[in-house]
Amino acid sequence: MAEFRRLYDTVFPILFRVAYRITASEDAAEDLCQDAFFRLYEKGMTFPNQDEAKYWLIRVVKNAALNYAKRKDRERKAYQRAFREDHRVQETGETVFLKNETKNEVKEAMDRLPENLRTVLILKEYGELNYKEIGRALGISEGNVKVRVFRARERLAELMGKDGAYVS
């Protein structure tokens, strides 16, 4: 149990940030993290070292969070269709608002990335993992991570440039 607690203390912040970024909900992020740790304990899983357990947990939480986000997105679209709501963003002339919009534009652009590029960037920026750790968590090579992070950044810059954001 002491070992489990140590693992929890080390890995929880990473998992929570990643899950929160993907789901945009603290409650959902808490639930997903709790489920992942519970599964690990319940199944009595053993790993050669703490890092391997960390990669397993990241993988589980990442997948669960992506599934959650997809489900929520489907629900949201269904409600929008049902209520025929108009969700177009209203334009304002305020610079402050535009700056906030710019920040949101980055995140919206991020959501438009393909999943394989989005996941590596989330783990890099929110999980604060290095290339090697991301590679181990996703089961891909370090070189592959390097390429995906680069492509994700380039794609984001391009998307934001098209939308007229403040990133040039």
């Binding site: 945009a24 534009e105 980055v106 995140k107 920026e125 950044r153 990133v167 040039s168």
Partner: peptide, 20 residues
Amino acid sequence: QERLSVYNRVSQGLLAPQTQ
């Protein structure tokens, strides 16, 4: 320098608060 600043802004945009 310009390209690096683009990468910095992308990261800052991602790490900015989600809501006001």
